[in-house]
Design a protein around this nucleic acid. Structure first.
Length: 250
DNA sequence: CGACTATGGGCAG
DNA sequence: TGCCCCTAGTCGT
């Protein structure tokens, strides 16, 4: 499920497989017009937060956002016919990627790309992420820290599962407000470290020793102390937190 | 096999 | 606020 770590994983894999080539684009579903990309070389596949940007020579950037349900299927045999409903197939003679149920799949002119970048906060998985700016933005947020980290204009790429697990690792109550620079920096460093683990593993990893386990996300009890996990609505998503390990600041 | 849920997010209304 | 996106894993019947 597509939070930032999986978007970066897709970008890395597809960049390795497709960049520098002339992939064939098609839309079996018919809801995407591949015409502008016919015969165009793909320069790079870039991830920014939860967004994917496919940069082509002499064509608008292709913007993909998976939303909650979108996914890619990879076919080692590009001759395999796509299932119904494939919005976009990117294929070479060696591999095909089928995009299903994205919330966005569209050409994006340069000014749209600039606007998109400007709308996003630092992405902990990008090499060009500015940690000081990330700290500033989080510390400047006025609401609950648990809402701020889901705000893509504060930090880009964090979703609900990462929110739950990162705030647990930081010992931070999601309802806490106005985190200071030290707290914000600690949380950022956790995000940088753990999202990279998640990208490499292909799943949320919040305990490297037990990568399939979670501390509080979707759990009934805290995996560390056994206390009942508190769950409530925060930032239009269900928040999960341990009342013991993430005590309320007041 | 149907119901339910969910790791996003934009837009209509 | 509700709805959509040709989803998928899980659970109950």
């Amino acid at each position: 499920m597509p939070e930032g770590h999986l978007i970066h994983r897709y970008a890395r894999e597809q960049d390795a497989a497709l960049a520098g080539r002339v992939p064939a684009l098609s839309s079996p579903q018919g809801r995407f017009d591949p015409g502008p990309y016919a015969g165009r070389a793909l320069r790079t596949v870039e991830a920014y937060g939860k967004h994917l940007l496919y940069h082509f020579d002499d064509s608008p950037t292709l913007h993909v956002h998976l939303g909650m349900r979108g996914l890619f299927l990879r076919h080692a045999d590009p001759a395999v016919p796509p299932r119904g409903g494939v919005r976009l197939r990117l294929a070479t003679d060696a591999v095909a990627y089928d995009l299903i149920a994205p919330i966005r799949c569209e050409p994006l002119p340069d000014d749209g790309v600039r606007a998109l970048r400007a709308s996003l906060g630092p992405d902990p998985l990008r090499a060009d992420a500015d940690a000081a700016e990330a700290v500033r933005r989080l510390a400047a947020s006025s609401g609950a820290v648990g809402a701020a980290v889901l705000d893509q204009s504060v930090w880009a790429g964090i979703g609900n599962a990462w929110r739950a697990e990162l705030l647990f690792l930081a010992g931070l109550d999601p309802d806490a407000r106005r985190p200071g620079p030290e707290v914000a920096r600690r949380l950022w460093d956790l995000a940088v470290r753990y999202l990279a683990l998640g990208r490499d593993a292909g799943q949320v990893v919040s305990d490297p020793d037990l990568p399939d386990e979670r501390w509080v996300y979707k759990r009934e009890t805290c995996r560390r102390c056994g206390a009942p996990v508190r769950r409530w609505d925060l930032g239009a998503r269900t928040a999960y937190a341990c009342p013991v390990d993430q005590p309320a600041a007041n």
